[in-house]
Write a protein that binds this DNA or RNA. Structure first.
Lengths: 229, 229
DNA sequence: TGTACATCAGTGAACGCGCGTTCACTGATGTAC
DNA sequence: TGTACATCAGTGAACGCGCGTTCACTGATGTAC
């Protein structure tokens, strides 16, 4: 009987995963404020100070949870987008949006961690920017592809100067090939997807909507007509 | 020198206002979780148990804050709507939406209390339903008035059965005179207003928007075209 | 108009609980020569 | 291949702090007759 030997680095990685696993259970059952280092330690049969070998502060642990959540969501949406043939921009839009809702429904507390009230006294480190952008980049690419496929005659023109109130260079990067006139629409579509899901999860649609999945898919269609063409 | 005599009922009302005043300061400076009965008592020079004469539990105090916030916002929006001549539905829509944003910007923590992550272990009593509906009713009435003024020829028709996934009787009441086909659009417009404001206040638009007020007013215009005509 | 009694605001002590973080330490595992 | 030293996981006690809620009580204010 040989004991499988794991290196310190391996054991360390395993322990970090264990801590995050238990923390996520607490997140799901009691919300962010219920994530407690002392309770994690208790659950793992450790003394509370032992956790400081892995996370030097509670905020650092929360950051890890946030990063994981952004990456999970981002990966789900990227996969959904990739599962539809590139030319079918409407299908890609639909798939991406449904993937967002699916993830949010399956992980309401993680969703809340990302899109609910920001944590007080918590400041997201720069680390989180890239994972947080994954979803947005997918949506922007789809909108961009849709507009690149439009006949030039169908492209609306306008002469309002938008540079004073929108960050055009940033949006141009996120929405490649999209006419400036559509930037506001893109921002609306983007924020409406999450606005709808927040309203759904936070209970503001109670009494108005019976079947949320069906309602959301109609919303997605309306938004597609609004932003893709 | 006569001491102005106040009845017990008057003194009680004054004390309740004082407690709420201090609680709101805590709400603004430290968020909901920072609202502490013991600290309120300290601020007022009272012993903590004295507060139980006025609020039998912390949740009851929070409910009072929520009610006040809903009513403040509702009143602001009702006034904005009433300040525009009734026939000008676009003007009324614009005024109402801007009033929402103005209130949210001026009271971000109260806004968060109403539209951010719901409080854990807090269940809103039925009391809050009516004040919470005030804003929605104003918006619904404007949309309804807009549709009632449309020539019948311009009213789109569709034959999709919406009753299985929307609460039609409820929506018919909130959107008097609005064709069923527009219910989804109304829900989108409604949730987008708050979705936008949440994204703004919670920092998700950072890097995309420079002048939020101007961006919001464009959003309001797009939504008006989307939902009023 | 005065007395008797009920109501109610506020006191002070206590219950029982939670938390993040620091620090000096033991003992096992890994590394360099 | 064996020894010396450094690294690191985990311990246990402590610091210093917070909270909501209950309960028996005092003393002032209001009410009914």
């Amino acid at each position: 009987m040989t004991i499988p030997k794991r290196s310190r680095a391996q054991l360390r990685a395993i322990q970090i995963d264990e801590i995050k696993r238990v923390a996520k259970v607490q997140l799901v059952t009691k919300g962010v404020s219920g994530v407690s280092l002392r309770e994690i330690a208790r659950d793992l049969g450790l003394v509370s100070s032992a956790l400081y070998r892995y996370f030097s502060t509670r905020d650092e642990l929360l950051t890890a949870l946030i990063l994981d959540a952004y990456n999970e969501l981002g990966e789900a949406v990227e996969k959904a987008d990739a599962s539809v043939v590139c030319d079918d921009t409407f299908g890609r839009w639909r798939a991406a949006c449904l993937a967002i809702r699916q993830w949010a429904s399956a992980h309401p507390h993680e969703y809340t961690l990302l899109y609910g009230t920001p944590l007080l006294d918590y400041h997201a480190p720069d680390q989180t920017i890239a994972p947080a952008s994954r979803v947005t980049l997918v949506l922007g690419r789809i909108v961009g592809d849709a507009h690149r496929r439009r006949p030039p005659s169908a492209i609306p023109t306008g002469n309002e100067d938008v540079t004073s109130w929108l960050n055009v260079s940033n949006l141009a990067q996120a929405l490649p090939g999209v006419p400036t006139l559509y930037y506001v629409r893109a921002l609306i579509a983007w924020s409406e997807i999450f606005g709808f899901l927040s309203f759904e999860l936070f209970g503001h649609f109670k009494g108005s909507i019976i079947d949320y999945e069906k309602a959301f898919s109609h919303v997605v269609e309306e938004l597609a007509n609004f932003v893709l063409y």
